[in-house]
């Protein structure tokens, strides 16, 4: 396997307030891959990205970007990185084009209008290039932030919650853009708290919670692990206990006994649902509604943390 383009070793962060945001994180990112960092709010995703990009100083650990130490040779390391932050922080009075030029210059590149035009066209911003940023909608502002990051031709692009608060159409566009960038050879690291987003976009997924990187794996492998689903059966009459005859299924009672919940593995060949329903009919247990859902990310984290503890 080739050298990773980004290597994080033993990075931890304790803020001055005493909050332990990260605990000894190790992570390798391969050149040209799309990596999704999945985790609930407050898990340490943004802290980790901020440390790699040089905005937050790590308490311990080292970071190597394309062979350059991020602390020892920050210029060489940072030049390769583009960051699209979570917050829509823009220079409101600037025009789209001038703010992109600023980013390009700031990262040490001579102005070359062709490249910025191309980026703006790619993001459907070209028509708006002379518009002031304050006149743009929220979705457009996010595109501007992406354009700014791409203006200096980074090898690695960080997208911090790129689809948070974004409408469906823009989300689709964003996914397409990420795939196009990958085709051009850009390595992409994105954070998200939507499983389906990681599923849609990423090659590999890392799950982070409570400042710890719990698992890093190929997407397919991880989705199998995480792919638990729930079937909620709304009962006609509330139950106190689950009848012993139903012991073969992983069942629990919710909603004061009015809902019977069955947790199953969606990837498995036999889900056990038809047999469960037949059994319920045999036992004369009436139900009026069925609802399946993917188990929430929080549930999955709870499982992972439990596994990690074993």
């Amino acid at each position: 396997m080739s050298e990773p383009i980004l290597s994080v070793r033993g990075v931890s962060k304790t803020y001055a307030s005493g909050v332990h945001a990260l605990h000894a994180v190790d992570l390798d990112i391969n050149k040209g891959e799309i990596f999704a960092l999945l985790g609930p709010n407050g898990a340490g995703k943004t802290t980790l990205i901020s440390i790699i990009c040089g905005i937050v100083t790590p308490s311990t650990g080292t970071i190597t970007v394309g062979g350059f130490d991020a602390i020892g040779q920050p210029k060489r390391a940072r030049r390769q990185i583009g960051l699209v932050p979570q917050e829509l922080a823009t220079d409101m009075f600037e025009t789209v084009e001038s703010t992109c030029r600023f980013s390009r210059g700031l990262f040490g590149h001579p102005q070359k209008s062709g490249h910025i035009d191309e980026v703006l066209k790619d993001l459907s911003l070209y028509e708006k290039r002379k518009a002031k940023i304050m006149e743009l909608s929220g979705g457009m502002k996010r595109r501007v932030l992406i354009a700014k990051a791409l203006a200096h031709e980074p090898d690695i692009l960080f997208l911090d919650e790129p689809t948070a608060g974004v409408d469906v159409e823009l989300r689709r566009d964003m996914w397409k853009l990420v795939h196009r960038l990958r085709e051009k050879g850009t390595t992409i690291i994105l954070t998200t708290h939507y499983i389906e987003e990681a599923e849609e976009m990423a090659d590999r997924v890392g799950v982070i919670s409570g400042g710890k990187l719990l698992v890093v794996d190929e997407k397919a492998a991880l989705m199998k692990k995480l792919g638990k689903r729930e079937l909620d059966i709304a009962l006609n009459e509330a139950m106190d206990t689950i009848p012993g005859e139903l012991g073969d299924w992983d069942l629990s009672l919710e909603n004061e006994g009015k809902t019977l919940r069955y947790v199953f593995d969606a990837q498995a060949e036999r889900t056990g649902i038809p047999s469960l329903l037949r059994k319920l009919a045999d036992l004369n247990i009436g139900f009026k509604d069925l609802e399946t859902s993917k188990s929430s990310l929080e549930d999955i984290f709870v499982d992972l943390v439990k596994e990690g503890g074993k």
Binding site: C53, G54, I55, R76, R78, A89, M92
Partner: peptide
């Protein structure tokens, strides 16, 4: 104030 300082801090500029 606006948060755009992230870019200055992450830029390869001393």
């Amino acid at each position: 104030f606006t948060g755009t300082i992230f870019e200055l801090l992450s830029a390869p500029i001393s």
